Computed example of a mutant assay.
Amino acid sequence: MTSGWTHSLFGQLTIATLWLLIVGLCATIVNHFNPDRNELVRKVIHIGTGNIILIAWWLNIPMWIIIAASIFFSILTLLSYYFPILPNINSIGRKSFGTFFYAVSIGVLAAWFWTVGKPEFAAIGILVMTWGDGFAALIGQRFGKHSYRLWDMKKSWEGSSAMAAISFSVCALILLSTIGNVWQIWLVSLLVGLCAAGLEAFSKFGIDNLTVPIMSAAIAFFLTQNLL
């Protein structure tokens, strides 16, 4: 049972801020011991910050706070592409707006699913991107031996398989905790996993950080509404 303090706006913001500080500290430690592994630092931040959606869901943080934070970080990440504001996240001039799309997707999903009282689907979308995309990149880089090309992008079957498996697991765990163990959730989770893997394969300019969370959440939401 949560205390009255966690229901106060100050308490909610304090917990969310502490989590982001912990993620930042972890990224700093990783960067200290692996100064040449900038991609690893980015993935620590990518995976860590996405879990803020769980805090927002569990503490019932107001929608306007999430959207305001999304707008703030969207502007900050855009500026960071041209100025050294977030050097561990973006490289100046890097031809990817993935971090920007990441921040935008959180605001879009909060506006959608907080409004209809279904924040668990926002969590599905964000966590599929957070865990699925994050580990797909790490596994693909470390273990990717069987590559394929989609347009001018090189991907690996190992990374895509990891994306599908982790996305399936994320979706299934959340639906199990909110709906219960019915056969439909396994079908929904399978379709979400396959769709997420397909969308992640097309990641030009980081657009997958927008398409993966929104489409994963939308598929999970509409299928559960129609199959259950």
Score class of each variant (00 low, 15 high):
residue 3 S to I: 15
residue 4 G to S: 11
residue 6 T to N: 09
residue 9 L to K: 13
residue 10 F to T: 14
residue 11 G to T: 02
residue 11 G to N: 02
residue 18 L to Q: 01
residue 18 L to M: 08
residue 18 L to G: 04
residue 19 W to H: 11
residue 19 W to Q: 06
residue 20 L to A: 07
residue 23 V to E: 12
residue 25 L to V: 15
residue 26 C to A: 15
residue 27 A to D: 02
residue 28 T to D: 13
residue 28 T to K: 15
residue 28 T to W: 15
residue 29 I to N: 10
residue 29 I to V: 14
residue 31 N to Q: 15
residue 32 H to Y: 07
residue 34 N to F: 15
residue 35 P to C: 03
residue 35 P to E: 08
residue 37 R to W: 14
residue 39 E to V: 05
residue 39 E to N: 05
residue 40 L to W: 08
residue 43 K to M: 07
residue 46 H to G: 04
residue 48 G to P: 04
residue 49 T to W: 08
residue 53 I to F: 05
residue 53 I to A: 12
residue 54 L to E: 01
residue 55 I to E: 03
residue 55 I to F: 06
residue 56 A to C: 09
residue 56 A to F: 15
residue 57 W to D: 02
residue 59 L to G: 01
residue 59 L to C: 00
residue 60 N to R: 10
residue 60 N to G: 06
residue 61 I to S: 01
residue 62 P to M: 04
residue 64 W to I: 10
residue 65 I to M: 06
residue 68 A to L: 01
residue 68 A to I: 00
residue 69 A to T: 10
residue 70 S to R: 00
residue 71 I to R: 11
residue 72 F to Y: 15
residue 73 F to P: 00
residue 79 L to W: 05
residue 82 Y to L: 09
residue 83 F to D: 08
residue 84 P to R: 13
residue 87 P to M: 02
residue 88 N to C: 05
residue 89 I to G: 03
residue 89 I to W: 03
residue 90 N to Y: 03
residue 91 S to L: 13
residue 92 I to R: 13
residue 92 I to F: 05
residue 94 R to K: 08
residue 97 F to W: 07
residue 97 F to E: 05
residue 98 G to A: 10
residue 102 Y to T: 00
residue 104 V to G: 00
residue 104 V to P: 08
residue 107 G to N: 13
residue 107 G to D: 08
residue 108 V to P: 10
residue 108 V to H: 08
residue 109 L to R: 01
residue 109 L to M: 05
residue 110 A to D: 05
residue 111 A to Y: 04
residue 112 W to A: 10
residue 116 V to W: 04
residue 122 A to Q: 03
residue 123 A to C: 11
residue 124 I to P: 05
residue 124 I to T: 09
residue 126 I to Q: 03
residue 126 I to S: 10
residue 128 V to E: 03
residue 130 T to L: 12
residue 131 W to H: 06
residue 131 W to Y: 14
residue 135 F to T: 02
residue 136 A to N: 06
residue 138 L to K: 05
residue 138 L to M: 10
residue 139 I to H: 00
residue 140 G to H: 11
residue 142 R to P: 11
residue 142 R to V: 13
residue 143 F to R: 12
residue 144 G to V: 02
residue 146 H to N: 12
residue 148 Y to K: 04
residue 149 R to M: 03
residue 150 L to G: 03
residue 153 M to C: 13
residue 155 K to I: 11
residue 165 A to E: 06
residue 165 A to V: 09
residue 165 A to G: 08
residue 167 S to P: 12
residue 169 S to F: 14
residue 169 S to Q: 11
residue 169 S to I: 14
residue 170 V to C: 02
residue 171 C to P: 07
residue 172 A to M: 12
residue 175 L to K: 07
residue 175 L to C: 14
residue 178 T to G: 12
residue 179 I to M: 01
residue 185 I to A: 10
residue 185 I to P: 04
residue 187 L to N: 03
residue 188 V to D: 05
residue 190 L to H: 01
residue 191 L to P: 05
residue 193 G to N: 07
residue 195 C to E: 14
residue 196 A to Q: 00
residue 199 L to P: 04
residue 199 L to N: 04
residue 199 L to S: 14
residue 203 S to E: 12
residue 205 F to S: 15
residue 208 D to W: 07
residue 208 D to C: 11
residue 209 N to G: 08
residue 212 V to S: 06
residue 212 V to L: 04
residue 213 P to L: 11
residue 213 P to G: 07
residue 214 I to F: 07
residue 215 M to I: 14
residue 216 S to V: 04
residue 218 A to D: 07
residue 219 I to H: 07
residue 219 I to T: 06
residue 225 Q to Y: 11
residue 227 L to P: 05
residue 227 L to Q: 13
residue 228 L to Y: 14
